[in-house]
Write a protein that binds this DNA or RNA. Structure first.
Length: 574
RNA sequence: GCCUGUAUGGUCUAUCGGAUAUGACGCUGGAUUGUCGAUCCAGAAAGCAGGGUUCAACUCCCUGUACGGGCGCCA
């Protein structure tokens, strides 16, 4: 037996107990006479005492930090003055036997040291020994476990779908896997089990879920990895509201199991409102600073920057913030919004009851009117921008709002909401056609189509769950009638032949009695990162990739042998 | 594809167009009988790669590489 207890469980009540512990040597404190060894495992740390009369006294000199050792000894209470607040701070173990199970080479860092992420990723197995990383993985497990319990209770079946599947167009770039048996053919790793879970609905599975890996070969971000985990859900005989209720309940439940209370009711915010007020389809409302349309105040301005835009039927929008402002800061913000296609920002503040601004001499009347109507008071700063493209204006100001919020405001708590009524279509400059914004199986608002609403304004039964400004998940009600599906393909310029070639199996299935259905996928990585308050999902993934898609631990991706290439019939260029 | 930041002992970092490159942690050796980031003394240990500017480059410039953040992209 390697151990009778873990390093995190011995308490004062275990006094006198004879125990065997195994773990890593966290620290050795040699006081010349008495020596202390701190033994660590994922449950905690226990102090081992070695007195000069101990049978293993000289053996302690052979061990070093991060060795794996086993000890046998007796639990005793520490002297009063030596008690600490730690989990096992009341006791220590007087060692009688000590065995080195495995020596450690001098590590590049010790668990919990402040080290660059690059080094942490290279030695991820050491990094994961830290209490923080261990906790992140524990929280992740608890949330995944709670998900299974909750959904199983509600009658959902966890059903696996293949990872080696068919490449489908639309959406992200596929990771391809060459087929050896059918040379020249490729599997694709699924971007999500979307089509397969819909087929499960056709099969009558009624309520499906899966905690599943998804793969998208696109450039990475702090919250995007090439492979990530979704809580994938699909339900039959449901309306949008049923899916939202279920997902909301699930989110509340899994957060509750780790001690976080999400709001009783998630607000529903239409996409357009989110864009207008926050310039984002995943707003973090905790920062306040809602954006306002101020175009009317500038209709008669002759300040060139503004007039040029107004003459082109452009817009002026802005928001109020309680932040420091100076010429230098304004320049920085202007530079920032230039990255989003704007020319810069305008601003004014109220200082000593006066409007202060580098542009006050051109726009004083406008600023005064805005101050009055929007109750801009002493110390407030008002930031404005102009552009002829309203979407660009919203996005740029929204990004600035978020930057300012993160810089100056300490927010706490959890803001959870639904963004609904997403546009059904989206113009693709690259392809010069409308593409499905969510995916081509999403149910559009039929009345919008019947009322001949312009394509870009047709709404979809698509929804995103947003928590603290992160897109925690998204889904839609699907099309269950072949006629509508065909109409949609027509709208996105997909010919019958192409549609058949690409989604033939789904279209075929849609002819055999399909229940109305819909679903959602929640991003587990993001849910966990929100729960442990980190911005980067790498912190909650055991073995993540760098932003260039490599694994510093294994050095993947790497070249393969000519023989391997030959087997799958692939010749490399050059 | 584009923009941007970073690169100095094992780790985290300081400084400087010139001389012996700073400190902390860790490590090694020594001292030390109640520590808990133990303490005290001593020691070893470093400029990402290539090119350029210069009498002289770790420092300035360019290119590359790696890592971070963002835009595009991500149904």
């Amino acid at each position: 037996m390697y151990r009778t207890h873990t390093c995190g469980e011995l308490k004062a009540t275990d006094e006198g107990e004879r125990v065997t512990l195994s773990g890593w040597v966290d620290r050795i404190r040699d006081l010349g006479g008495v020596k202390f060894v701190i033994l660590r495992d994922r449950y905690g740390k226990t102090q081992i005492v070695v007195n000069p009369d101990s049978p293993v006294y000289s053996k302690v000199d052979e061990i070093s930090r991060e060795d794996v050792i086993q000890i046998e000894g007796t639990v005793r209470k520490r002297p009063k003055e030596a008690v600490t607040n730690e989990l096992t701070g009341e006791i220590e173990v007087v060692v009688e036997r000590l065995e080195i199970l495995s020596k450690s080479k001098l590590p590049p860092f010790y668990p919990g040291d402040e080290v660059s992420e690059e080094v942490r990723l290279k030695y991820r197995y050491l990094d994961l020994r830290s209490a923080r990383m261990t906790n992140n993985l524990i929280v992740r497990h608890k949330m995944a476990f709670a998900t299974r319990a909750y959904l199983s209770d509600k009658g959902f079946l966890e059903i696996e779908t293949p990872y080696l599947t068919k490449s489908t167009p639309e959406g992200a770039r596929d990771f391809l896997v060459p087929s050896r048996l059918k040379k020249g053919n490729f599997y694709a790793l699924p971007q999500s089990p979307q089509l397969l879970k819909q087929l499960l609905m056709v099969s009558g599975m009624d309520k499906y879920f899966q905690i599943v890996r998804c793969f998208r070969d696109e450039d990475l971000r702090a919250d995007r990895q090439p492979e990530f985990t979704q809580i994938d859900i699909e339900m039959s005989f449901v309306h949008m509201e049923d899916v939202l209720q279920l997902a909301e309940g699930l989110a509340r439940h899994i957060y509750a199991t780790i001690g976080i209370n999400l709001p009783e009711k998630f607000d529903k915010v239409p996409f357009e409102e989110a864009m207008e007020k926050y310039g984002s389809d995943k707003p973090d409302r905790r920062y306040g600073m809602e954006m306002m349309d101020l175009t009317q105040y500038f209709k008669n301005s002759d300040f060139k920057i503004v007039k040029d835009i107004i003459d082109k039927d452009g817009f002026v929008k802005g928001f109020k913030a309680n932040i420091p402002m100076s010429r230098k800061i304004a320049d920085e913000y202007s530079e920032f919004v230039k990255g989003y296609g704007l020319g810069g920002i305008l601003w004014f503040k109220i200082e000593n009851g006066q409007i202060t601004s580098t542009t006050a001499k051109y726009l004083e009347n406008e600023y005064v009117a805005i101050s009055k109507d929007y109750n801009v008071s002493e110390g407030d700063v008002f930031i404005l921008a102009v552009h002829e493209d309203r979407e660009k204006l919203n996005t740029a100001l929204g990004a600035l709002r978020l930057k300012i919020g993160k810089q100056y405001m300490k927010v706490s708590g959890y803001d959870a909401l639904w963004v609904i009524e997403f546009p059904f279509l989206e113009w693709s400059d690259e392809e010069q056609r409308f593409v499905a914004r969510h995916h081509p199986f999403t149910m559009p608002y039929i009345e919008d189509i019947e009322n001949n609403v312009e394509p870009a304004k047709i709404r979809a039964y698509a929804y995103d769950m947003v928590i603290n400004g992160f897109e925690a998940g998204g889904g839609s009600i699907r099309i269950h009638k072949r006629e509508i599906q065909e109409k949609v393909f027509e709208m996105i310029g997909l010919s019958k032949e192409e549609a058949n070639e690409k989604f033939g199996f789904l279209l075929e299935a849609l002819q055999y009695g399909v229940p109305p259905h819909g679903g959602i996928a929640l991003g587990l990585d993001r849910l966990v990162s929100i729960a442990v308050s980190v911005e980067n999902i790498r912190e909650v993934i055991a073995f993540p990739k760098t932003s260039s898609g490599t694994c510093l631990l294994t050095n993947a991706p790497s070249t393969v042998s000519q023989a391997q290439l030959d087997e799958v019939g692939i010749t490399l260029k050059q």
